[in-house]
C-alpha cells in the first residue's frame, strides 16, 4: 500500500517531477519509506517504554502499598505512602493557574489577533512565544526571591483583608504556599494559552467577522459572538494543553510551594504536588519501597498528563477539522 500511494503522489506532482521520478530507484524509495516509518514507530516506542519502565520500577510499591497510596499520610520512615495530599496540591495549584492564565491568555490572544496593528502584534507574539521557552528553574528563582515576598507583604494581606471570610484566605501568610505555586504556574501557562489561542483565532475565516459586522455589530460583539464561538473548541484545546503544563511542572513549584504534605483549605499554607515530590525527595530516598513509591507518583502523574493531552489533541483536531469545511 505504501508503494502505491508513493506512486500516486509522484504521478500527480506533474511533468516537472516526471524526469526526477525516473532517476530515483525503487530501492531508494523503499529505504526512505522505511526511515520514515522507523521514526514514527520510534516515538511511539519511547512512550511505551517509558510507561513500562515506570510500571516495572513502581511494581514493588504497588505490591506493598496497594490501595494505601490513596490515603493522606506520607511518612516514608514509618512506611506510609499516601499520595492524596500531592494530588490535592496538584489540583489546587493547577486550578489557580488555569483560572488566572485562561482569561489572561485568551484576552492577550484576542488582542493580538483582532485589535493590535500588525507591527505591534508580530513582535509581541514572538515575545510571548519566547516566554514559553524560559527554563522553569528561572521562573522558580524569580518566584522565590520576588513573588514569595510580594505575596507575604502585599498580595496575601490584601486578599485576607478583602476575602478573609473565605476559608481559602485565612490563617498565617508565609509567602511560600499554594498561592505562590499557583501564581508561578499561571505565569508559565499564559504563553502556552496565548500562543495557541492566537493561532486558533487567526484561523477563523474573515467572512465570519464580516458577516457579524454587516449585521450591525460592534467590534466587541463581533469578537464575542462570531470569533469566540467559532474558535471555541480550539480555545478549549489551548486551555487543556496549558493545564497539562501546569500539572507536570516540578522545578518552579518545588521552589515556592513549601513542600509540606497536607490538605488544608487556606491557599497561604504550604503544600506539595505530584510533580515536585519525586524531584525533591529522590536524592534522599532510602529503601526499595520508598524509591519505588516515588516512581509510582511519577506513574500516576504520567497517566494523568497523558489523558489530559489526549483530550486536548482531540479537541484541537475537531477545531481544525471544522475550519477546513
Amino acid at each position: 500500500m505504501s508503494q502505491e500511494s508513493a506512486e500516486v503522489i509522484s504521478a500527480t506532482a506533474g511533468a516537472s517531477a516526471r524526469a526526477a521520478r525516473t532517476r530515483i530507484s525503487p530501492a531508494g524509495d523503499r529505504i526512505f519509506m522505511f526511515l520514515l516509518y522507523a521514526s514514527a514507530w520510534f516515538v511511539l516506542a519511547i512512550v511505551a517504554a517509558l510507561f513500562l519502565v515506570l510500571l516495572q520500577r513502581s511494581w514493588p510499591a504497588i505490591q506493598t502499598i496497594g490501595l494505601g497510596v490513596f490515603t493522606q499520610l506520607w511518612d516514608p520512615g514509618g512506611g506510609h505512602f499516601g499520595v492524596l495530599t500531592f494530588i490535592y496540591g496538584t489540583i489546587v495549584t493547577s486550578a489557580i493557574a488555569l483560572l488566572i492564565a485562561g482569561p489572561v491568555g485568551i484576552g492577550a490572544a484576542l488582542f493580538l489577533a483582532e485589535l493590535a496593528p500588525k507591527r505591534l502584534a508580530t513582535p509581541v507574539a514572538m515575545l510571548i512565544e519566547l516566554l514559553a521557552a524560559v527554563p522553569s528553574v528561572v521562573y522558580g528563582i524569580w518566584g522565590l526571591f520576588v513573588l514569595v515576598p510580594v505575596i507575604r507583604m502585599y498580595i496575601g494581606p490584601a486578599l485576607q483583608h478583602t476575602f478573609g471570610f473565605l476559608p481559602l484566605f485565612q490563617g498565617p501568610i508565609y509567602g511560600v504556599g499554594m498561592l505562590a505555586g499557583g501564581l508561578i504556574l499561571s505565569i508559565m501557562v499564559v504563553p502556552t494559552v496565548a500562543a495557541i489561542s492566537r493561532d486558533v483565532f487567526e484561523a477563523v475565516p474573515n467572512d465570519q467577522r464580516e458577516g457579524m459586522l454587516a449585521l450591525g455589530s460592534t467590534k466587541w460583539e463581533m469578537m464575542t459572538k462570531a470569533v469566540l464561538p467559532y474558535a471555541r473548541s480550539g480555545v478549549v484545546g489551548a486551555l487543556v494543553l496549558g493545564l497539562g503544563r501546569a500539572l507536570g511542572e516540578a522545578m518552579a513549584v518545588v521552589m515556592v510551594i513549601g513542600n509540606k504534605p497536607q490538605i488544608v483549605a487556606s491557599l497561604f499554607q504550604p503544600a506539595y504536588t505530584m510533580a515536585s515530590v519525586p524531584a525533591n525527595e529522590f536524592s534522599e530516598a532510602t529503601g526499595k519501597v520508598y524509591i519505588s513509591a516515588l516512581i509510582e507518583v511519577g506513574l500516576l502523574l504520567f497517566i494523568v498528563s497523558l489523558l489530559v493531552n489526549i483530550s486536548a489533541r482531540l479537541l484541537v483536531w475537531n477545531a481544525s477539522g471544522r475550519g477546513r469545511r
Binding site: D207, E210, G211, A214, Y230, R322
Partner: peptide, 12 residues
C-alpha cells in the same frame, strides 16, 4: 444589509 459571495452562516 449585506449578503456575501460565499455563504457564511455562523457554524455554532
Amino acid at each position: 444589509g449585506m449578503v456575501f459571495q460565499r455563504p457564511n452562516p455562523f457554524p455554532t
